[in-house]
Design a protein around this nucleic acid. Structure first.
Lengths: 112, 112
DNA sequence: TAAGTTGATTACCTTATGTAACTAACTATA
DNA sequence: TATAGTTAGTTACATAAGGTAATCAACTTA
C-alpha cells in the first residue's frame, strides 16, 4: 500500500493530523502555553501517548518544550509559528463540527 | 482517559478526521464520484481498510454508495452534502502543507 | 471448463494505543 | 529521619487497529 497519486506534502500534513490525538493536542495548545498534566486532563489522553505525541510534534517543529528547573520541575509546552499556523485548519474543523455534528448524541459546549 | 474539557462536537469531528486514511479518502472523493478500486489505487490504502472506512463514512452520512448491478458489478462512491462541506477543511490543510511541509524529504506535486 | 472481472471478507501477523504501576529528584510534613 | 507528596515521564502488559495476501460471490468471456 504505497504509491498514491496525491501530493506528498498534503499527505504528510494529513498524516500528522490524522494521528490520533494530535489535532486535539494542538487545538488545546492554541489556548496558550500549558504543562504536561494540564494538556493531559484537558484532552483526556494517557500520559504515555501524550508523551509520544509531544515528542513527535516537537521533532516536527510544531511544539516547543521549555524546562524550568524549579521544584517540582516545571515543563511548559507551547506552539511554534508552524504550530500556530494550524489554527485556521482547526477552526475550520470546529466550524464544520458545529454545523454538521448533531448534538443529540454528543452534547454541546459553550460555543453552541 | 475520558473526560476532556473540549467541545464534544469538535471532538467528534476530529475523531472522524484523525482516523487514518479518512482525510485522504474524502480528499480523493472531492475530485468526483469514484469506484472502489480507483480510490484504492489513488490513495494507496489496503482493500480491507478502505472497505471499513467507506462503511464508516457512509454510516456517518459523509459518503454515498450506489450499486449498479451490471457485470461485473459497478459500485460508485461519492460525497454527500455533508461530505462536500469538508472541502474547506481539506483545502486549509492543503494550503498549510504547501507552506510548511518541506519538499526535500517529500517530493512535490503539480500544485507546488 | 478455465480464467477474468469487481467489491469485499478472512486469516494471520505487526503496530498502535490504553491501563496501571513505577521512577527520579526534590520538598514538606510528622 | 522516615513518610508522603509533587511533576513529568517510563515500563510492562493487554487489547485494538492496521497491513498482506489469499479467498469469495456472481457473473462473463475465451
Amino acid at each position: 500500500m504505497k504509491q498514491s497519486t496525491i501530493c506528498p506534502k498534503f499527505e504528510k500534513a494529513i498524516s500528522l493530523l490524522s494521528q490520533r490525538w494530535t489535532g486535539l493536542v494542538i487545538y488545546q495548545l492554541l489556548t496558550g502555553t500549558q504543562r504536561f498534566s494540564e494538556i493531559q486532563s484537558a484532552v483526556g489522553i494517557s500520559g504515555k501517548v501524550l508523551s509520544d505525541r509531544l515528542k513527535d510534534l516537537e521533532s516536527q517543529g510544531v511544539v516547543k518544550r521549555e524546562v524550568f528547573p524549579e521544584t517540582p520541575v516545571i515543563i511548559e509546552y507551547s506552539l511554534t509559528e508552524k504550530g500556530h499556523s494550524l489554527e485556521p485548519v482547526l477552526k475550520e474543523i470546529e466550524n464544520w463540527s458545529h454545523i454538521w455534528v448533531s448534538s443529540e448524541d454528543d452534547g454541546s459546549c459553550d460555543l453552541d
